[in-house]
Design a protein around this nucleic acid. Structure first.
Length: 586
DNA sequence: CGGACAAGCTGA
DNA sequence: CAGCTTGTCCGG
């Protein structure tokens, strides 16, 4: 008799089924099965073995086996994650399961077919220390240094079996898998290599979802660019791959190495910090030029003299290449009347309006309503631009330097536009799409620094680190230029000095003072049923509830156990309810 | 989630 | 009161 979690998000109950003799060899803890539930056949996972059903219940038989599922340790982990992120167990079991039916596990890779070679480099000694420590270590490695090396060194020291390596993007996971194979390690690359991973004896490599890899017992793990937001699932439940891996390593007593050029306060809390030599780290950041635009008229545009000089000096070289980052899509994002000076606003909701087409109508970015391009105050049809978007910036920049600029923003990754261009203008997406550059310029870095999120500073430094990787370190001649009205900002100082502690030290103090994560835990409630759920939570004395805006409720507690216990113990009202534990906004 | 069933509304 | 919609309940 087994207990089964149905693969239906809205059904939170577990049900008991008899395992028929014919299915007995295949069905075990973690297996995927099909069951008859309430008149229909649905998928599910075995989450308990040899159970005794409650009195008065006569279980039906398991209908079919759907093959391999996560190992027992990962089933336990899913139950923990369900508590930690207030989501259904089934969603985590789904992430932990193979895409296609796997009938039997792969044969384990033969133990140590070849010795994995040590890559050498600045991080070798630091990896050794981290492994000896046996717990979690943040390895701060400047952006121009190869983040794959600590992963190679780790496998060199502990071997491939039971080792998990995560990368923030599929491309980087593929690259890391190649490097490991060339170094002599057997590798299972997720998601395709699920069965191979379950077979054991291989380093398991993958992205966010690989945090749920079928490894029975972890021996060590490494996360590349552990600060990267890609490790957070944005859809509800909003779990974090770094925290999932950290929990697995904690449970199995395995060392965890979090490699990152710019640790976040949350990563540093609960981990030891290992740093390279100060001069090595400094050289691993490019030269950063901060252009102070405090005195400039807001309408002088996005292009300082220093920027134009930099563009010319790079573009005069035959292969020279510059990427300009502006975090606003569209052509014109903020307009004002040339006659009376009134800012053009939406007549319906009062939001700012932009002008998507040359000479076209005005459109509100907030409510989407459109109106003719005429000043609402004085009827003048002459509007001037206060803040331009990427499209307009691309046009103006081409004219300014006499080199054709190519716009690269969002869209499908890997599209070839802009890949060969020498002058690229785009949103931060361009940093993911362009391979190499001689210089990166942030046309308005304040947009990032002042974003209305408490993690905005850390995210901004992450962006600068990503740009740093495109241009290389100080020795390689890489250049970053940032235009700002806040030249003393900790984020910019951290980048200028190649010293992330200049951000994390004050940031930690601020978080502690305000009781923000990691010094306190938050959950954001939204949806039609959020109000009544928030009302029920007000009665729990370990949490406090506030409402930052009309349809959102924020639940605070001193730590995650208190927060998660309160969320789990409070019955959910029917109706739409989205619970986001550890929200980044507000 | 989606089927079952009850309550509520409508038109001949 | 059949025929339909809408809402609530519940699953082994």
């Amino acid at each position: 008799m087994v207990r089964v979690v149905p693969d239906i998000p809205a059904v939170h109950r577990w049900f008991d089924y008899v395992v028929p003799d014919a299915l007995d060899p295949e069905v075990r803890l973690g297996s995927r099965v099909r069951i008859d539930l309430h008149g229909r056949r649905v998928g599910g996972w075995v989450v308990e073995d040899r159970v005794t059903p409650p009195a008065g219940v006569t279980p039906r038989a398991v209908a079919l086996s759907s093959g391999e599922g996560p190992p027992a340790s990962v089933v336990d982990l899913a139950v923990w994650a369900s508590w930690r992120w207030a989501g259904p167990v089934s969603s985590f079991l789904g992430t932990a399961s193979p895409d296609r039916v796997v009938r039997r596990p792969a044969v384990p890779a033969r133990p140590h077919p070849r010795t994995v070679t040590s890559p050498g480099g600045a991080s070798v000694g630091l990896v050794a220390t981290a492994l000896d420590r046996g717990s979690s270590t943040v390895l701060r490695l400047a952006p121009a240094l190869d983040a794959n090396l600590p992963a190679l060194e780790l496998v060199h020291r502990v071997g491939p079996d039971g080792v998990l390596a995560l990368a923030p993007s599929h491309a980087r996971a593929v690259h890391l898998a190649d490097r490991l194979r060339r170094a002599g390690a057997p590798v299972a690359l997720l998601p395709d290599g699920w069965a191979a991973a379950a077979g054991g004896g291989r380093v398991v490599v993958g992205t966010r979802a690989a945090a749920w890899a079928p490894i029975g017992r972890m021996r060590a793990a490494v996360v590349l660019d552990a600060h990267d937001e890609a490790y957070r699932e944005e859809r509800s439940p909003t779990w974090s791959a770094v925290e999932v891996v950290a929990e697995r390593c904690r449970r199995d007593g395995a060392p965890l190495v979090l490699v990152t050029p710019c640790p976040t306060v949350a990563l540093l809390e609960g981990s030891a910090l290992a740093v390279t030599d100060r001069t090595v780290e400094r050289r691993g950041w490019p030269a950063v030029e901060v252009v102070d635009r405090t005195g400039d008229d807001p309408r002088t545009g996005l292009f300082s003299e220093r920027l134009v000089t930099l563009l010319h000096s790079v573009l005069d070289r035959p292969e020279g290449r510059v990427v300009c980052i502006l975090n606003r899509t569209g052509r014109a994002r903020l307009l004002a009347c040339a006659h009376c000076g009134a800012v053009a606003r939406c007549t319906r909701c009062g939001g700012s309006v932009g002008q998507p087409e040359v000479g076209g109508e005005l459109r509100c970015g907030r409510c989407g309503s459109g109106r003719p391009a005429i000043c609402a105050e004085c009827d003048s049809s002459r509007l001037k631009l206060l803040r331009m978007g990427v499209s307009r910036a691309t046009e103006e920049l081409s004219a300014l330097v006499g080199v054709e600029a190519v716009e690269v923003s969002g869209g499908a990754p890997g599209t070839p536009e802009g890949v060969g261009a020498r002058l690229v203008v785009g949103t931060e997406a361009a940093l993911h799409r362009v391979g190499r550059a001689d210089a990166v310029a942030f046309l308005d870095v304040d947009q990032h620094l002042l974003a209305p999120r408490f993690g905005a500073g850390e995210e901004s430094l992450g962006l600068l680190a990503r740009a740093a990787r495109l241009v290389g370190g100080r020795e390689a001649g890489g250049r970053l230029l940032v235009q700002t009205r806040i030249p003393d900002h900790e984020v910019l100082q951290a980048a200028v000095h190649g010293d992330p502690a200049r951000l994390t030290d004050p940031e930690r103090a601020l978080r502690r003072e305000l009781g923000l994560p990691p010094f306190g835990a938050l959950a954001l409630l939204r949806g039609a049923a959020a109000e009544s759920y928030a009302g029920a939570l007000r009665a729990v004395d370990t949490v406090s509830v506030s409402s930052p805006s009309a349809d959102r409720w924020l639940v605070r507690a001193d730590d995650h156990p208190r927060l998660c216990d309160a969320l789990a113990a409070t019955p959910r009202p029917s109706g739409r309810l989205r619970v986001e534990v550890d929200p980044t906004d507000v």
